[in-house]
Amino acid sequence: MILRHSSLEGLLSTLSTGARVYVPAKADGVTKFVLYSSSVRPDFSITNTTMPPKDLLFPQTQHMYRYGTDAEGVPYVEPVHDADDVIVFGMRPCDVRSIECMDDVFLTKGFVDVSYQAKRERLLMVAMACTAPAPTCFCNSMGLCPTAAPLADILLRPAGATDASGDTAYLVEAQSEKGQAALAQWESYKATDTSDADFEPVSAAVSCSLKVSMVGVKDKLEAMFDHPIWEQLSKKCITCGTCTFVCPTCHCFDISQENRLSEGTRFRCWDSCMFTAYTEMAGGHNPRASKSARVRQRFMHKLCFFEQRYGKTLCVGCGRCVEKCPVALDITCLIDQIGAADVAY
């Protein structure tokens, strides 16, 4: 199916009658996935949004259940169900891959997170291939392709040639049964005066200029737990949580509650392994009290531990932390340093 850019607004309006549709846009100066309405101007040229789409499945604050005692003094526990049909329209391939990582964590290995699952089952991912990766993008190096998003339900690839009207075209392909079913709603917006064969979609030749080699990184890291690199590297880290909060795959959370008179709410919030309190235990002991231990944990988890457990790196190469770290502690520089480290593996 060929979809013209000029048809997108109509399509988004139609889609938002049956689901909450999120599109990349700037809101109050921050680029993120914003709930579509007629007053929102989607911007499909953004690479990448400052905030990743992870909060749609894993909100920064998620109420899990309410509890308390009713008027007769009988205790109750009331789960909070807040899953809706959600369409994320215009996810980049790296963000789609990040959902794959979150699925591993929240749905596999014999443990299913019901809050995540409820949202995940009602999510439709519409991906948009990249034509112009940002200077901080390095997804190729992490085993991704900027123009392919295998887990997406529907993939839009900007077609190489714009037609005579100057209107950009997208080649639309369903990649799952869910995506195929969803395309029924799109039919009335497809371009009828042309066929798929007339367009050359953006090719796999699109590539990130930033490149790193992941060869041997995981294996080397297994032997680098006590390497001096962590002490040296962590000196400039100010242990804020920026990298973890803008990361599309960081998924650590902390469960807490607030009580008022006879009722309360249990909720979970994003937590960050950069924060001292992250590993602080009830008795006051902290196994990761030092800054270098915390920095090591973050990078080990991204580049070694996750791969050991799930067979893929927890970094998708989106470059958000590279761009936003206030002290330019750059994961790609670390990967280079690991590559250069004289460690047998």
Partner: peptide, 30 residues
């Protein structure tokens, strides 16, 4: 993310009010 606090040369408390979890000055919800 507390980057403001962490980058500030005036924010030098050994334990920030935010991290005093037992006192609970700062709730965790965003």
């Amino acid at each position: 993310c507390y980057a403001c606090r962490k980058s500030c040369p005036c924010c030098t408390c050994r334990e920030c009010f935010v991290d005093q979890l037992r006192a609970g000055w700062q709730g965790k919800q965003n």
